[in-house]
Amino acid sequence: MLLWSGSFETKIDFVDRHHKEIFQLLNNLINKMQQGNISHEDIDSAVHLLIHHTKNNFHNEELLMLESHVDQRHSAMHHMEHQSFIYDIDNFSEISGSYDRRITGKVDKLVRFMTFWLTYHTLGTDKLMAAQIANIKSGMTPQQAYDSLKDQKQDPVTVKMIQDSLLNLWLESKERCAQLEKKCGEFEKNIEELKVELQIMTFTHHN
């Protein structure tokens, strides 16, 4: 569950509204997953809706940064984070193509990934964006707004939340690496066996 709290507020109306919606959609998906008798179509459409809204939010944020003339150093980095998320999410896209029972496992991973990622990105990057826009509105140049934030103090609770989300993202990746490595090992063994079988076959064939 990804619970909304004041720490997530960017104080930009439509951004906060969108973030709340996304959190809600994610929680809906989690609830659906916890019910046993959920249909594949239901999960599929919930996943699509969630991803659609998230991508939409990125688009709106990037427009806002352009309109507010946010410093390029930030907007480029922010854009890259969004892109990298979309890339990672698309790796989960096989979900909608697989009608088998493993779908629950896959959606579970997607949900975990999105929970950690949204926590880290909203608390870190989005709030950094919001703070700059506020500073620009109050008369700073975009450069000044960017530089003034480099030394901005963050409260320890928020830092801890960001840190834990990043550590979890890292852990999940490490786990996936370990699984892939196991699969590689199995496949390599499989290939060895097949090669031996082929050799025996050609041997008996020639005789």
Partner: peptide, 20 residues
């Protein structure tokens, strides 16, 4: 770095699958 390693492993898995 862990993600990058995952990607490389995924490529390897696909190649092994083709060999099989």
């Amino acid at each position: 770095d862990a993600k990058e390693r995952c990607n490389q492993m995924e490529i390897k898995v696909t190649e092994l699958q083709k060999t099989i």
